[in-house]
Structure formats: structure tokens, C-alpha cells
């Protein structure tokens, strides 16, 4: 399309883009570097030697809060939120392909779920559980609070996917004698699988890092982001950065594996 040589606009914008990427990743790389601070090093540069001291420190329970426990809770919560988000978004996406009474209000309810301030969701669920006489906990109230954040993303993604999905494939399958379940399983599902994996990634990551909605609804036991938030006020050693490095690398790993899976599926599909 553009065969002419690069314009001056291109170079200006390329520099702008590069600066934006530095802005995005610069601070993050600063804490990753500083987490390898020597035992006597502080919260800022320069590095006072290089060591794994703060990572070892992280594993001792008394140094920080309950790192292992909060990590396990966040992982379990993230996986359950992911599963529910994928299933419910897929079903809702299928539902929205047909016209039904209440489709528009339900769609706007999903959008509302995205725009209602997190602290209000938090407060509402807190008061609801209090009035029902149920103790809030990370697996009940915080689970529901996180779904109000992950589901709209899932539903909107599925909505977009089915907007572009040609019904011709299903008609062809049906003409060949496939039942509607067979059509779904062998035609629709393989085609939308990469998007479903994407929804799963959103569900897991948004839950694993969720903070504002979880803060007031998690009850007695902290999830990992809450543990980190508590640390920002009372931990003044690079162990905070070590924790940040570990969770960020874990997030990167999850993203890399998912993106890899999506590419693999797409390539297999185009080759077939």
C-alpha cells in the first residue's frame, strides 16, 4: 500500500512510539534490577552489590506477610475466575447472536459492570454480605466482585468475535447433516478457540492482579495484590521489589504461554 519512502512523519512518530515503550517498561525494569540489590542495598540506585538475598528473604514468612499463602489463594482464585469467565462469556456470546427480549438491557448491564467504580462494587457486595449474615471471603464475595470486572471484558470480546463470524459455516455443517451440538463442537468451537484462550488470559490476569474490588471483599485472608499493597506502607527493603519481580515474571510467563498457544492454534488452522 505505502510504497513511497518513509516520510519525516514516520521518523517523528517512531521516536514517539519508542519513548512510549520506554515509559511503559522503564520503571518496571528499574525494580527488576533493584531486586538483585546486595544485602546492604536500599530502595534506590546505585546497586550495592548483586545478590539473591531479597529473593531468599521473600521465602521466609516472618520477613514479609504470608507470601506463599496469598500466592496460592490468588492462583486458585485466578483459575476459577478464568474458567467461569470463559464459560459464561461463551454462553452469553452465543445468546447475543439471537434477538431475545432483554438482550439490550443485559448488554448494557455488562457495560455498566465495566464503568461502575470498583469501590462502589466493593462497598455494595460488602453491605450485601453483611445484611445476609455471611462472612466475606476471597472465594465467595471477592470471587463475585472480580467476576463483575472480568465478565464484561469476556462478553465484549465474544460479542466482537460473533459479530465477525459468518453463519455460512454452520449452515454448511447443517446441510451436511450435523446436529446443532456437532456443529458447535466441530465447526464453531475450533474457529473461536483462539479467542476463548484470549478471554481466559484476560480472566486470569485481571483476577490475579485485581486489587480495588478485592480490597473490601476478601475477608480475613489476603490475595497477593492485597499483600503487596499492605507491604507498600510498611516494608522499606528491596524485598518489595523481589516480590514485584517474581509476580511480574509470573504474569509474563502466563502471557507468553497463552500467546504461544493462540499462535499455534491459528497456524494449525490456516495450514489445515
Amino acid at each position: 500500500m505505502h510504497r513511497e519512502p518513509r516520510s519525516r512523519e514516520f521518523y517523528v512518530l517512531a521516536i514517539f512510539f519508542a519513548l512510549f515503550v520506554v515509559f511503559l517498561y522503564g520503571p518496571l525494569s528499574a525494580i527488576i534490577i533493584l531486586s538483585f540489590q546486595g544485602p546492604n542495598g536500599g530502595l534506590t540506585f546505585p546497586l550495592n552489590g548483586v545478590s539473591l538475598h531479597w529473593f531468599a528473604n521473600l521465602m521466609q514468612t516472618q520477613a514479609v506477610g504470608d507470601f506463599g499463602g496469598s500466592f496460592r489463594r490468588s492462583l486458585a482464585l485466578g483459575l476459577s475466575v478464568m474458567v467461569v469467565t470463559v464459560l459464561v462469556s461463551l454462553l452469553a456470546g452465543l445468546a447475543f447472536r439471537r434477538r431475545f427480549l432483554g438482550a439490550t438491557p443485559l448488554f448494557y448491564l455488562s457495560v455498566a459492570s465495566l464503568v461502575v467504580p470498583s469501590i462502589i462494587v466493593s462497598l455494595g457486595i460488602g453491605v450485601l454480605f453483611q445484611q445476609l449474615g455471611i462472612q466475606p471471603a476471597w472465594y465467595s464475595s471477592a470471587f463475585g466482585a472480580q467476576l463483575t470486572w472480568t465478565l464484561p471484558f469476556g462478553v465484549l470480546i465474544m460479542f466482537a468475535v460473533f459479530n465477525r463470524f459468518s453463519p455460512a459455516y454452520e449452515e454448511a455443517a447443517r446441510d451436511l447433516g450435523a446436529s446443532s451440538w456437532q456443529t458447535f463442537l466441530h465447526v464453531v468451537l475450533p474457529m473461536i478457540a483462539p479467542s476463548l484462550i484470549g478471554v481466559g488470559l484476560f480472566g486470569f490476569s485481571l483476577s490475579y492482579d485485581e486489587f480495588a474490588r478485592t480490597l473490601m471483599t476478601a475477608g480475613t485472608y489476603n490475595t497477593l495484590p492485597l499483600e503487596i499493597y499492605a507491604m507498600t506502607t510498611n516494608v522499606t527493603t528491596p524485598v518489595l521489589y523481589a516480590l514485584g519481580t517474581v509476580t511480574t515474571l509470573f504474569s509474563f510467563l502466563v502471557i507468553a504461554v497463552t500467546v504461544g498457544a493462540i499462535f499455534y492454534l491459528n497456524r494449525r488452522r490456516t495450514r489445515a
Partner: peptide
Amino acid sequence: PFLTSNIIRMIS
């Protein structure tokens, strides 16, 4: 970065 922790990105 959108899929990593907001808190970490703040303290960074």
C-alpha cells in the same frame, strides 16, 4: 503491561 499488577507498576 496491562496484564501485570497495577500496584507493582505504581511502586516501580
